[in-house]
Write a protein that binds this DNA or RNA. Structure first.
Length: 479
RNA sequence: GCGGAAGUAGCUCAGUUUGGUAGAGCUUCAGCCUUCCAAGUUGAAUGUCGCGGGUUCGAAUCCCGUCUUCCGCUCCA
């Protein structure tokens, strides 16, 4: 599977989906750019998500809040205090370590196979972590007589106090600004604005697509864990009494949404959260089977009134819903939070196939869901003479206003088809000599390479029928 | 951070053991030929061999240093 990931990364680059960012200057690890087809695919995913949230649900609206965020917002939300890792520095070597890794690695080496001893210490360690008892943690480090594993010098045993590394990027030369670590806070901050201006009643939701930034300790696995990433989040505001109902509702809806893409039902699994984030009370992950195994794709959490209550407290504003004076409450929130880059990679990795054909040759093909394909169709001339390219070109220009399509004439027809397969174009329309006679073209399907003839006038409808977003949206509504 | 792998053409890689004019396939580009699946054919372009030093008459190759990327482990979307 390691080789498949390599193949995926290479294919993504060769065909204009994903490029390593800042590549000509050596690149930056785990930062990527979207290429010409990558951005089309990404935009289509966004559109699908956006419409299924906002257009199909009259009680969900979207916003686009700023990435730069006031530090007080993140102070209130708990991110400044809770969203961090514990670090300790060696005073001699000046090297820094993640506290729990330093201790764990040490005792695993020191006690080797004595699991009883190891577990004893781990239990103590976990307790200290829970209580944020940094004093006892540093005592433990001293008690275990841990020396700096990098320098290897046994005299390097003097450690600083425990430090906290915040996972957020701070804008250093600007007062009190952070790059947001999640899009959700922008939604909470606009709760009143949206609610008042839209006159929406509970339950209602606010959706947002946008970049978020986290200073991950280790960013890896292609597009999976990035320091700059894009989220598609929807915060659904509810009556606290209905927490379980809506949590269950959105869990089901979101799973159905993923399944509508037909990447394979066995590609998904639901995992209940054991370690909840500081703001959540109920949580489940929809995991996807990536080339490197099942990993988180989307999280559905109940954030209860954690965020709104905090913002109420720090701003003295009221986020209280007042229904005819009978019931007053601060709404609970059910959050659905989807990693756009992760979904992008899920689609790409499960769509990339190498097929063996009957003639013994190989076909590299991206079986992307047609409604998300970067290019919907290609108009191709069978041969490069007798005015056939001109006809194809004319069809292209008439049709390009309706759909994102390509006209290509270079090389033999076989090569043209394969080139479209490689970027996942679902349909190819080929102009040949019969077109001159009766205005028909061959339509060739990406997935099975079958062909049939249709009239030129039907091309537009055919593309819409096979690749339109409407079909899949309709399917969601009927569920 | 630790551990593993690797940096040579747009992509995949050979060449490094044993120093001697920088290579292949695919891609790309320009033709010719072709009535449907990476076809045939003619030609062309493409490189500071990651970077810096050293050894040598001569370094992609040997030595020293350095940078970067990818993968695994802890965090999460």
């Amino acid at each position: 599977m390691k080789n498949f990931l390599k193949f995926l990364i290479s294919h993504s680059k060769s065909y204009g989906f994903i490029f390593p960012s800042n590549e000509i200057y050596g690149g930056i690890n785990a930062i990527y750019d979207y290429g010409q087809y990558g951005i089309e695919l990404k935009n289509n995913i966004k559109e699908f998500w956006w419409k299924s949230m906002t257009q199909l649900n009259e009680n969900i609206v979207g916003i686009d809040s700023s990435i730069l965020t006031h530090s007080n917002v993140l102070k209130s939300s708990g991110h400044i205090d809770e969203f961090k890792e514990l670090l300790v520095y060696n005073k001699n070597s000046k090297k820094k370590y993640q506290v729990h890794l330093l201790i764990e690695n040490h005792i695993k080496k020191f006690f080797k196979n004595d699991n009883e001893q190891i577990n004893k210490i781990l239990i103590r360690l976990n307790e200290y972590f829970k209580k944020k008892d940094t004093l006892n943690i540093i005592n433990l480090i001293n008690e275990l007589n841990i020396h700096d594993p990098i320098s290897g010098n046994k005299k390097d045993k003097i450690w600083t106090n425990i430090h906290f590394m915040n996972m957020m990027f701070e804008i250093k030369n600007s007062k009190n600004l952070f790059l947001r670590p999640e899009t959700a806070q922008g939604i909470f901050c606009n709760f009143i604005n949206v609610q008042k201006s839209s006159r929406m009643k509970i339950p209602f939701g606010i959706a947002q697509i946008g970049k978020s930034f986290r200073n991950e300790i280790i960013a890896r696995q292609f597009l999976f864990r990035l320091r700059e990433f894009e989220q598609m989040e929807m915060q659904f505001f509810i009556n606290p009494k209905e927490e379980k109902k809506w949590y269950k509702y959105w869990k089901n809806i979101r799973l159905k949404w993923h399944n509508s893409l037909n990447l394979g039902k066995n590609k998904y699994r639901l995992i209940d959260h054991k370690n909840l984030a500081h703001y959540a009370s109920l949580g489940v992950d929809i995991e996807f089977n990536y080339p490197f195994g099942f990993r988180e794709l989307e999280g559905i959490h109940s954030r209860r009134d954690f965020d709104l209550k905090k913002h109420e407290l720090f701003t003295n504003k009221k986020f209280i819903i007042n229904n005819n004076k009978k019931v007053k409450y601060t709404p609970y929130v059910i959050e659905t939070s989807l990693g756009l880059d992760r979904l992008f990679m899920a689609i790409l990795s499960s769509s990339l196939k190498e097929e063996k054909l009957d003639n013994g040759k190989k076909r590299t093909i991206l079986k992307i869901p047609p409604c998300l394909s970067p290019v919907k169709a290609a108009i191709l001339p069978l041969v490069k003479k007798d005015g056939i390219p001109d006809i194809a070109n004319k069809i292209f220009h008439n049709e390009k206003i309706n759909h994102n399509i390509i006209y290509d004439y270079k090389d033999s027809i076989g090569k043209l088809y394969r080139r479209q397969d490689a970027i996942g174009t679902p349909l190819c329309f080929t102009v040949d000599y019969k077109t001159i006679e009766n205005n028909t073209v061959t339509i060739r399907y990406r997935d099975n390479m079958n062909q049939e003839r249709i009239h030129i006038n039907e091309i537009s409808n055919k593309i819409e029928l096979e690749t339109g977003l409407k079909n899949i949206l309709k399917k969601l509504l009927n569920n």
